[in-house]
């Protein structure tokens, strides 16, 4: 652990910027602070976010609000059944003037990509996102094009039971750092929304509060947050426990462990700490792991959700006491 330590000033900067973004988003998404926090965590941890919920609860609004809060390039791709992979990644076209092929970038070439209703596109098109999300590059016709940093995919999807959807394959779900559900607002928040959203569209009034360069700095601050060995072991133990559980037919992947620890670092930084606690890890476990796990047939028949199974697993993993000085 030879990384330079994060000093207090860095953490203050991070908190200030994050607070501005949070306030901005909350102007359009009211009464959902925990969802906004999760979004920020994923943003700072350089992950991708999957927002899953029934139609009309503000999935697109959230993704747009986040995109608008940051002064950077934003693209929105509306996934439809007839969307082609080249629409996502880009295509080489023949230029009659220059008599050569030139690359025309697709929707993925932006700092923030909002993939709306991603499960409405065919699996082939969904898969086009795979390389982009993990490796932050696009390969078309043997040419590889790097994506800008920061790069974040915010995808929304309807629950897979809805008609006209193609469930995301496991490989693609695993590439999202976290999944959040917005859920219905409480009555007071819904009332406030009626008052603010009927006369005008608050989304249009959002001004960017940060930019790509500042975001890059923030992510580097998060990268320096310290993860002690006991906490690392704790994260590994949780993942290992999901793999052993008889109630799950698919456990967490090593990439999931990686995402869990990265998210915990971002959460710790947001909490003003330059070190990760076991509580950060356990607190984020559901958002980071649940969408990657497949319940076994027995658990499904027994009516147990993945979240319940995960909760039981967490209760069974002992928290390490840490380095005794």
């Amino acid at each position: 652990m030879a990384a330079p330590s994060t000093d207090g000033a860095d953490l203050e900067t991070l908190a200030r910027v994050a607070d501005r973004v949070r306030t901005n988003i909350e102007r359009v998404i009211e009464g959902k602070p925990e969802v906004v926090s999760a979004t920020l965590v994923v943003l700072l941890a350089e992950g991708h976010l999957l927002i899953e919920d029934v139609p009309g609860v503000g999935k697109t609004m959230l993704s747009k609000a986040l995109a608008r809060s940051i002064d950077c390039s934003v693209r929105r791709i509306q996934f439809t059944p007839d969307l082609l992979p080249s629409d996502v990644t880009g295509v080489s076209v023949f230029n009659q003037d220059t008599r050569s092929f030139e690359f025309r970038p697709g929707g993925v070439f932006a700092n923030i990509v909002v993939g709306d209703e991603i499960n409405r596109a065919s699996p082939k098109t969904q898969s086009a996102l795979l390389e982009c999300m993990e490796e932050r590059q696009v390969t078309v016709d043997n040419a590889t094009y790097q994506l800008d940093s920061p790069f974040m995919v915010i995808a929304t999807q309807n629950p897979i039971e809805m008609e006209g959807t193609y469930a995301l394959p496991e490989a693609q779900r695993d590439r999202f750092m976290a999944r959040v559900s917005i859920g219905y607002p409480v009555e007071a928040a819904e009332l406030a929304m009626l008052q603010s959203h009927t006369s005008h569209t608050p989304l249009d009034e959002l001004e960017p509060v940060t930019d790509a360069a500042e975001l890059r700095k923030l992510t580097s601050i998060v990268g320096e947050v310290y993860v002690s060995e006991p906490v690392q072991r704790y994260a590994v133990a949780i993942s290992a426990a999901t793999r052993r559980s008889p109630e799950l037919s698919l456990g967490a992947s090593p990439r999931a462990t990686l995402h869990l620890v990265r998210a915990a670092k971002a959460y710790a930084a947001l909490s003003g700490r330059d070190y990760v606690l076991p509580d950060d890890v356990s607190g984020l476990a559901e958002r980071v792991l649940a969408h990657r796990l497949l319940p076994s047939v027995e658990a499904s028949m027994g009516g147990r959700t993945t979240e319940e199974v995960l909760g039981r697993i967490l209760a069974g993993v002992a928290v390490p006491e840490g380095q005794r000085s």
């Binding site: 652990m1 330590s5 310290y226 002690s228 006991p230 906490v231 700490r273 330059d274 070190y275 990760v276 606690l277 076991p278 006491e321 840490g322 380095q323 005794r324 000085s325």
Partner: peptide, 9 residues
């Protein structure tokens, strides 16, 4: 927590 989990130890 600082003593157990932070770099400062």
């Amino acid at each position: 927590e600082r003593s157990r989990y932070s770099r400062a130890g």
